[in-house]
Design a protein around this nucleic acid. Structure first.
Lengths: 219, 219
DNA sequence: CTACCTTTGTTGAAATTTCAACAGACTTTT
DNA sequence: AAAAGTCTGTTGAAATTTCAACAAAGGTAG
């Protein structure tokens, strides 16, 4: 576990917990590390939720697919980020999303019950852990609402611009990369890929943005 | 406070907490009750989030509006339900939503800091309260994802049918009322009102649903 | 370096959604 | 009970989005 310490220290779940306590706690929580190759399923749709995931390396996407194969990308998961915590906390019996590796990944899995029920050892930092989990859940809720802010726009152009402005703000720069290719961006924005490409072309011609593949610049 | 006991007992925030403890706790939490008339703003967009709300009577809507006046309804709030907890827990400085009374309301407001920081009295049920809050947050996250499941459908018809099927499931009956009028339903589904009316008309003619104002029946 | 595969941009036609405007039904107020 | 206001369904035109198909560009594997 020691080699993951730097990543884990950045994980919001473990903020305010000292290094040595962290390692003890991981043992106490029975944390496991698993590997997934690109495109492999980390959590499958339809299964019960038991584990909270923490991305150690690589990245993944959380997607929702319907009957017709339309899918929407809910979020991407980057190293140090927590995922599936809402389903695990709420003890959902049928997870409505799939988590898929975007590239080769290392993932830490922790049984949620071990977090919620304070352990026999009654470790003091367990309280802090629960507290952190709550903050993280709250933040996640807000992040999802941000997606609604974007996709509730009625036109492809408005959705795209809203998304790009939020990304620019996040990167704190007019020039930034996005974690999606075209099809993925279309799935995130809930629009047609070709229409999205067309709209990007128009915005470039109008001199509002510059774009090259997944690099964008607001002007 | 005593007159609200029946409503509060149904509130997920207070599950597993006995009546007498509940009343003590509300005092300890410095819970306040406020009244709002129809259309009044309970929480205004852009303000910092401090309080968690609990609906005691009446109902409210949580909405997000953009620059052009397009709005989307995130959820409705019914008696015993908690609202604004995500923003309060995450200590958001600028709430991106507005909470508006749908009819005359009584609302309980509790400073979130009083919940998160266990009190001086160190009451045992405070731990349970925090635990409940977390479960509630998790459930809320899932509820918001359900809205995404609905609105990510590409056509008005699919959005409407997905919504109606979820409502039917929730009501555990083919015949049910929805908490929206036409304009509100359109705002929730993120579609045009007239187009929605047209689509409802078609579905009725095709014998797939029956509809009268806010009452629906799936066939 | 070539062949193959994936991603991106483009296009036109078809389908859908939005918009604006209005009439009738329903509610609320006076 | 009338008047005023709100909500709902309809309509046609305009705008937009989706769909399917293809070519060009970029990447990968042998």
């Amino acid at each position: 576990m020691k080699k993951y310490l730097e990543i884990l220290k950045k994980c919001p779940l473990f903020s305010q917990i000292e290094d040595e306590n962290l390692l003890t706690m991981l043992k106490c929580l029975d944390a496991k590390v698993e590997f997934f190759d690109k495109k492999y399923t980390i959590i499958a749709e339809g299964n019960p939720a038991k584990h909270i995931g923490i991305m150690l390396s690589g990245s993944a996407q959380i997607t929702q697919s319907d009957f017709y194969g339309n899918r929407t990308i809910l979020t991407t998961v980057e190293p140090s980020q927590v995922f599936a915590e809402a389903f695990a906390c709420a003890q959902v019996q049928t997870v409505p999303v799939a988590v898929t590796a975007n590239e080769p990944c290392e993932v830490m899995l922790i049984d949620c019950a071990n977090i919620l029920h304070t352990c026999n050892n009654n470790c003091s930092f367990h309280q802090q852990l629960i507290f952190n989990l709550m903050r993280n859940l709250a933040a996640k809720t807000i992040l999802i609402q941000q997606k609604i802010e974007i996709t509730s726009k009625r036109s492809t152009r408005d959705k795209l611009m809203t998304y790009l402005m939020l990304q620019s703000k996040k990167a704190d720069s007019n020039s930034f990369d996005i974690p999606f290719n075209r099809q993925e961006l279309a799935d995130y924005l809930e629009v047609d890929r070709s229409g999205l490409s067309t709209e990007i072309g128009k915005l470039c011609k109008e001199g509002i943005i510059k774009s090259n593949r997944n690099h964008f610049e607001l002007i």
